[in-house]
Design a protein around this nucleic acid. Sequence first.
DNA 1: TCGACATAGTTCAGATTTTGAACTGACCGA
DNA 2: TCGGTCAGTTCAAAATCTGAACTATGTCGA
Lengths: 165, 165
Amino acid sequence: MNRFTEMHCSIAQAVGVVGEPWTPLILRDLFLGVRRFDDLAADLGVSRNLLTQRLERLMAAGVVERLPYQERPVRYEYHLTEAGRDIVPALTMLMAWGDKWSTPPGGPPALLIHSCGEQFTPVVACPHCGGEVTAESITMVGGPGAAPGPGTWVLAGGSGPVEAG
Amino acid sequence: MNRFTEMHCSIAQAVGVVGEPWTPLILRDLFLGVRRFDDLAADLGVSRNLLTQRLERLMAAGVVERLPYQERPVRYEYHLTEAGRDIVPALTMLMAWGDKWSTPPGGPPALLIHSCGEQFTPVVACPHCGGEVTAESITMVGGPGAAPGPGTWVLAGGSGPVEAG
DNA sequence: TCGACATAGTTCAGATTTTGAACTGACCGA
DNA sequence: TCGGTCAGTTCAAAATCTGAACTATGTCGA
């Protein structure tokens, strides 16, 4: 729980859980197979106490789970839960944005291969028409849970389409 | 510039620019049409000096631009640039994740309408086959810019597909 | 049985960042 | 001249993060 998770906004909810410093990179590493405390700390360069705290928060949020991989002494590995794996597509969009707008020297550090066999740049799509989702092609409207409060007055009351852009 | 933007990882690049506390919500508000300093501060509940700092960083990164909307006295509005609008699809994925895993009381605070006319939940897709991108359907491999260093050893050397999940 | 090593943390002082409230400065309108 | 608007700036206190050392549990080799 932090101030973001108390806002009536789904972006704030997500940011409150997976948007804290280091957390997206922790999730990336877990996805890539870096699962042990010392490996995460070494790979990321994050301080160990903060890593402890972030993993605790992610476990409390149900995004990460800790599983023993040996007894005597008991040692644990961290794994993404279903909710954690479900954030991976959003991470690929961040990666694509970083590649596009931050032009790393020598080209992208990593590439994505889809199960269809092709190397690809991910896009967000509308599942109804299959068309691409861009800032220009969408509108946000208040939903059933719309409520007044910080971060929501724009949509409060479900008062209809908001002109955006 | 911060320690994330110095890493050889596109996710870290993106997080370094748009992942600081409050920044995703600032971008959301700019997208929704909240453009003035006082409106942003009031809507978000962020301290004004931090808002100043975040907007400066976003302008330096080319994600936001400041345009005068009146003279005498000169007053400015903040707008998303092309790079800023380009992050919006990723924000919709965070929103969808928040809706799915954080079950807000009363339902989602906001809904998305695509230009095709349908209300939708965004998905990440492969532009080659149109298939959905999930943690299970993708593999990451080292790209041309792969380099050793914090946050990259997993992919360093372009040593081939990484088993993930 | 001793010492070195491995893993997964915890502790804590100092540095950095963020908050919250008040203040500044330019201008308008009555 | 007074009050209000807008876009910030200033600054002390609070919260967070870093970096290094330390703890705890158990293995292994000599």
